[in-house]
Design a protein around this nucleic acid. Structure first.
Lengths: 230, 230
DNA sequence: GAACTGTAAATTGTCAACAATCGGCGATGC
DNA sequence: GCATCGCCGATTGTTGACAATTTACAGTTC
């Protein structure tokens, strides 16, 4: 088939996508702050490229909604309001519930494959919980959910969820310390995994719903605090 | 507030987005055929612009998934397989079911506003059914569903559905005459509207599900025919 | 002192030229 | 006859320069 032994297709993906992926990572890691303007010349120089390819990448991220473009003024990193948080998690609920159903209808092999990866993520998560590495935990949290959705094999659902995951990480990042009680977090994900493995469709759906509703609560409450103190 | 009397913000939207919107319309109308390569120079000249802004627009459509980019070879219009059709309608089901729930939980005013627009669309649809204007019917069909989703007010759900609507129109277009029994089509949409107006959550959900499942059946069966005859 | 106007710097939007890459086609060798 | 190599046209990828617009600031006027 493809790539027989140690040979990779050289730079198979388009440049703009590579740049967009890098920028997305920088955004969710907080290198670019919400509301901040992206200076094309500066970022292009930093990435050792010219403004052309960079602008193409920026357009991709605008389409995703991570950046917003004001004509003749430039592109800015999205600022998340409480309404945005509710929107994001409402869509996540829709996607993850659909993924739950699809996975349950899929073969046991497909479920097992997914569960195997999810187990490893939870293991990693537990490690980082031990040392309270928030950034890593946020990344693994979203990786868990992304893997879950990826288990469906639906490329469109996966692509949609990629953006949602990025936005979710921005939510979490925007309030620095958002995770209340870290051990509960690991426990909740373990619970989702168990229900998936057991094939408990109804239970899984309810657990997903509650997991996300709880997240919205934590995020909006924390945000109210920051808004009041600010 | 904004635009007090007859004054509009001059060209408020970014250029790349305007070009992308035009191209998307051309794609779903079949001006660009599936699998066809987009010649940058030619299209840029046709749009009275240069390759720079055009390429930015193309990147947006690549991100959406309507175009696919092969490095150093160019961008091509998406070719829809039966697997794609199933994917698209699976995501549509997820989105529309979520929209149903959100709308039902929303206030009666919001529902009424939506229903008013939906009624007009159905009226238009009936007109075009009388003269069997397929293109118009396909457009109104998706406009009905887009309006339904837009009723939730969730901007992210709306943006996601925009792409799905475009892809759906491509599905329908790709097999020329896809609508079996036009009167039934109008009837089905009227049924959805009635259930929404009546506040019958369960009934609406089931109707949406069956409506989409039926569409997939029609599309995949029709596609099998074309593939056999081809 | 406040409001308005005009200028200047910085940044984005656009363009045209250059470089790199790919697919096709004919020539060559086996 | 078939496969391979190498060239050529066409198209994309990239760059730097130029034009247009916005924002901030200083100067002016009332």
């Amino acid at each position: 088939m493809a790539a027989p032994e140690g040979l990779f297709v050289l730079e198979g993906r388009p440049t703009a996508q590579l740049i967009a992926d890098q920028l997305r990572e920088q955004i969710v890691q907080g290198t670019f702050r919400p509301g901040q303007q992206i200076n094309e010349s500066a970022v292009a120089a930093q990435l050792r490229t010219s403004r052309g390819p960079l602008r193409e990448a920026l357009q991709r991220l605008c389409q995703e909604g991570l950046l917003i473009s004001h004509r003749n003024r430039g592109v800015f990193v999205l600022e998340l309001s409480t309404a945005d948080i509710k929107e994001i998690y409402a869509v996540r609920e829709a996607v993850e519930l659909a993924a739950s159903n699809t996975l349950m209808d899929a073969g046991q092999d497909q479920i097992n494959d997914t569960c195997r990866v999810l187990k490893e993520i939870i293991r990693d998560m537990a490690k980082h919980v031990a040392v309270s590495d928030w950034q890593a935990i946020a990344r693994l949290d979203m990786q868990f959910h992304s893997t879950f959705v990826a288990g469906t094999g639906n490329t469109r659902l996966i692509r949609i969820y990629e953006t949602l995951a990025a936005e979710s990480r921005m939510c979490i990042l925007s309030l620095e310390v958002a995770y209340p009680r870290l051990d509960v977090l690991v426990q909740e994900h373990q619970n989702l995994l168990d229900l998936l493995e057991a094939g408990d469709r109804k239970g899984l759906q309810q657990a997903v719903k509650r997991h996300l509703e709880k997240a919205v609560e934590d995020l909006t409450v924390a945000r109210l605090d920051t808004e009041i103190t600010a």
